[in-house]
Simulated assay, not measured.
Amino acid sequence: MSTVSVTAARSTLPELIERARTEAVFLERRGKLEAVVISPEQYQRMVEALEDAEDAAAFDDAMADEGPNIPWDQVKADLGWE
């Protein structure tokens, strides 16, 4: 992980993109973090991890809901699988 000023990033964009292939590059303006440059592969992994976490949370919420259990045989019949 490294930090680069926005001004420096403008003049070294090709090198910054190359560095982002192996590490996150933080862009800073006036001492404040403004953005992060990462590789498309890392971005995709992060999106997938977030989606997995959201799915797990939704599953946990659904399992916590109280309600009648439906027997598997009835579910199959309702879906026309029998």
Rank of each mutant, 00 (worst) to 15 (best):
6 V>D: 03
20 A>L: 03
33 L>N: 05
28 E>Y: 00
60 D>Y: 06
16 L>N: 01
80 G>Q: 11
20 A>V: 02
69 N>R: 15
10 R>N: 13
3 T>Y: 02
11 S>G: 06
26 F>L: 05
28 E>P: 02
58 A>N: 11
81 W>V: 06
22 T>D: 15
82 E>I: 01
62 A>R: 15
39 S>M: 04
61 D>Q: 11
21 R>L: 09
17 I>E: 12
70 I>K: 08
51 E>R: 13
41 E>D: 13
35 A>R: 06
31 G>D: 05
12 T>Y: 03
32 K>T: 07
24 A>V: 02
25 V>D: 01
37 V>S: 02
64 A>R: 06
37 V>N: 03
57 A>V: 13
74 Q>H: 14
40 P>R: 10
8 A>Q: 02
58 A>H: 06
74 Q>A: 14
28 E>H: 01
55 D>L: 12
32 K>V: 10
40 P>C: 07
51 E>N: 14
41 E>G: 08
73 D>P: 04
1 M>T: 09
69 N>Q: 15
57 A>G: 07
64 A>D: 12
2 S>W: 13
63 M>Q: 14
58 A>R: 12
5 S>Q: 05
69 N>P: 04
64 A>N: 07
43 Y>A: 14
34 E>Y: 01
21 R>C: 07
18 E>W: 02
11 S>A: 11
26 F>D: 00
30 R>N: 15
51 E>I: 13
60 D>M: 11
33 L>V: 08
72 W>E: 14
70 I>C: 07
61 D>G: 08
60 D>R: 11
30 R>W: 14
54 E>H: 09
66 E>R: 06
3 T>L: 09
63 M>T: 11
2 S>C: 06
44 Q>W: 12
49 A>N: 12
3 T>F: 07
79 L>K: 14
61 D>R: 11
24 A>W: 01
71 P>T: 10
67 G>K: 09
17 I>G: 07
12 T>I: 08
57 A>T: 13
19 R>V: 04
81 W>Y: 10
21 R>D: 08
29 R>T: 06
55 D>H: 15
66 E>H: 06
54 E>P: 00
74 Q>R: 15
68 P>G: 08
68 P>M: 06
29 R>K: 13
16 L>Y: 01
81 W>T: 01
14 P>D: 02
52 D>L: 09
66 E>I: 02
12 T>M: 07
76 K>W: 10
72 W>M: 14
80 G>N: 09
82 E>F: 12
15 E>D: 15
3 T>V: 14
63 M>I: 09
59 F>A: 12
77 A>R: 11
25 V>A: 01
1 M>E: 07
8 A>V: 05
6 V>A: 12
40 P>M: 04
51 E>T: 10
30 R>H: 15
44 Q>I: 13
79 L>N: 13
58 A>Y: 10
8 A>G: 03
12 T>L: 06
